[in-house]
Amino acid sequence: MSRRTEEPLAAPDTCALRLLPWTAADGKPCYLSTDGDHSRLSRLADDIEAAQLHSGEQVLTGSRAVLADAKAGERAVRFALTRATESLADVLRIAVSRGERIEAADR
């Protein structure tokens, strides 16, 4: 079993960069270089992360309801899985970003 040697969401070499909860138009990650957590853009990123986490909770609730419904059709299941996949990607991005900030604060 081979292991990936690079993290797809890992920040570039410098630890001072914050992975933002959105991507560029081409799908590449966006980073913020700032000396503090209280800049306008940092607060916007915090608000978007909170909204993404809240949305993920709602998607989880809805997906569980679809899966519990034996009569749910393929369309409903595919929709629930699509939304769950999107939410999981958001949550993983948030986890990577916060983990990098914790590591940087420990240094």
Rank of each mutant, 00 (worst) to 15 (best):
P21I: 00
E74Q: 14
E86L: 08
R3H: 09
L88E: 06
A80G: 00
S39Q: 04
E57V: 07
G99K: 07
E74G: 06
M1F: 12
R107T: 12
A25S: 12
E57P: 01
L53Q: 08
A25E: 14
D35F: 08
R83T: 13
G99A: 05
A68N: 11
R18M: 04
L32P: 00
I48R: 08
A68T: 04
A11Y: 00
L67Q: 09
L81I: 02
E7F: 00
M1V: 11
L67V: 10
E74K: 11
G27P: 00
R3C: 09
H38I: 05
H38E: 15
A25K: 07
C15D: 14
Q58C: 06
R43E: 14
A76T: 05
L41V: 13
D47P: 05
I48S: 04
L9D: 05
A104L: 01
T5I: 07
A104R: 15
A50M: 14
I102C: 01
V66P: 03
L88W: 08
A51E: 09
R64I: 10
L53A: 13
G73N: 15
L9K: 01
L32A: 06
R101H: 05
K28D: 09
I102M: 08
R107G: 15
C15T: 13
A65V: 10
D35E: 14
A80D: 03
V91E: 06
S39F: 01
A25M: 03
G62P: 02
W22D: 04
K71H: 08
L88D: 00
V77K: 06
G56C: 13
Q52A: 09
A84H: 05
L9A: 02
C30F: 06
A10N: 01
A84L: 12
T5C: 04
V66K: 00
L67T: 01
R43A: 05
R78Q: 15
V77C: 06
W22M: 08
A89P: 00
R40E: 15
Q58L: 15
A80T: 04
R40C: 06
T34D: 08
G99M: 03
L81D: 14
T82D: 14
A50P: 05
V96N: 05
L67I: 09
A95Y: 04
A11G: 08
I102T: 02
K71Q: 13
D90C: 11
D26M: 02
K71M: 09
S87E: 13
V96G: 02
T34A: 15
R40K: 12
A76G: 09
D46P: 01
A25N: 03
A50G: 07
I94R: 00
R107L: 11
S55K: 07
A25W: 07
T14P: 01
S2P: 15
S97P: 02
R64T: 10
A10K: 11
T34M: 02
S97L: 00
P12Q: 04
D47F: 09
A51L: 13
Y31Q: 07
R83Y: 05
D26H: 10
Q52Y: 03
D35L: 09
A65S: 05
L81G: 09
T5A: 08
T5W: 03
T82S: 14
D69G: 00
L44C: 08
A24E: 12
C15H: 12
A50L: 14
R3S: 11
P29G: 04
